[in-house]
């Protein structure tokens, strides 16, 4: 079992990877590979094991079982050497509130062993890259959420990493700030920086990831490109129908010939179908009169909800 062949080009290679905290199993035997140059996503609800997986890849949390190779090395043996080539953007902002914006980047460069002159230069370049140059001498605390996030991303780039780990990079940001972060991440990808990210935003996964895995309760429940996952687990289109609140319509037989799958929610009915126009015509033919109807393309969100369920996870 131990003699797993490491594909020489994989940046990350995991087989049967496990993380336990006492009797709780956070990550329950997952397999995945991340190739150079790609953006790879972990998608899943809260508590799915995404952050635990990221912390093992980041060599800050010991592996409980299975095998893990990062940049061809073993985190248990070469943790420091691996970390030297990683950039980490953690979920919480973990910025240093006691020193200035620029010094946050400067000292982080120093932690990676850069000389003072080089660290200073790098800090200024990165402030430029994330559009924070005019805040260089300010305290961190008064920055907006989006600015702090950009600063954390800049910090993760200070050592010019081969692999950037982003744990929920845009959670809590407003739309403008999210798009700015996405733009910066896209540019980094163009420059060949490989990225591994976790998110529970489906649009983010579709925007950023070449390939992703969906995690639920510590396991991988699906893997592929966003398009592949939609094709495999959903239909081309989704017809959303709303009926009057008091209408107790009979949906028996509704799927026949109209949709591959029907989902009845408290406020609406979803018909998963290849052809939304045909489906709505069929609905009318059967004498059903919805208050409103909407035909949309299937998204990763449909895949996600199908795979991980609609019940609330805490």
């Amino acid at each position: 079992m131990e003699a797993v062949q490491t594909p020489s080009r994989s940046l990350i290679h995991a087989r049967g990877l496990v993380k336990r905290f006492g009797s709780f199993t956070a990550v329950d035997g997952i397999d995945f590979d991340v190739e150079p140059g790609e953006a790879f996503g972990f998608l899943g609800p809260n508590g799915a094991g995404k952050t635990s997986t990221m912390r093992m890849i980041g060599c800050v949390s010991p592996v409980s079982g299975g095998s893990l190779r990062v940049l061809g090395m073993d985190p248990a043996v070469d943790g420091a050497r691996i970390r030297a080539r990683l950039g980490v953007v953690p979920q919480a902002d973990t910025l240093d509130l006691e020193i200035s914006v620029e010094d946050n980047l400067f000292i982080y460069g120093r932690f990676f062993g850069l000389s003072r002159a080089r660290a200073r230069q790098r800090a200024r370049e990165l402030l430029e890259f994330v559009q924070l140059t005019d805040r260089a001498r300010d305290d961190v605390e008064p920055l907006s959420g989006g600015m702090k996030r950009r600063l954390v991303i800049a910090r993760g780039l200070v050592n010019e990493p081969d692999l950037l780990l982003l744990d929920e990079p845009t959670t809590g940001l407003d739309p403008q700030a999210r798009h700015l972060v996405w733009d910066r991440l896209y540019r980094l990808k163009q420059r060949g920086v490989s990225q591994v990210l976790t998110t529970h935003y489906m649009d983010e996964a579709e925007q950023l990831c070449d390939r992703l895995v969906v995690m639920d309760k510590g396991r991988i429940v699906a893997a592929g490109s966003p398009r592949e996952l939609i094709d495999r687990y959903s239909t081309r289109e989704v017809l959303e129908l709303r009926f009057p609140a008091d209408a107790r319509i009979s949906l028996d037989g509704l799927p026949d010939g109209l949709a591959e799958r029907v989902e009845v929610l408290p406020d609406r009915v979803l018909l998963y179908t290849a052809d939304g126009e045909a489906a709505i015509a069929g609905v009318h033919q059967r004498g059903l009169v919805p208050v409103s109807s909407l035909i949309r393309r299937s998204t990763l969100e449909d895949v996600f909800l199908r795979l991980t369920g609609r019940s609330l996870v805490d």
């Binding site: 980041g58 973990t94 050592n159």
Partner: peptide, 14 residues
């Protein structure tokens, strides 16, 4: 509270 050590330990520092 500020998790400064978490961010330091993501670098090669032990």
């Amino acid at each position: 509270w500020d998790k400064i050590y978490d961010s330091i330990l993501a670098t090669p520092v032990q």
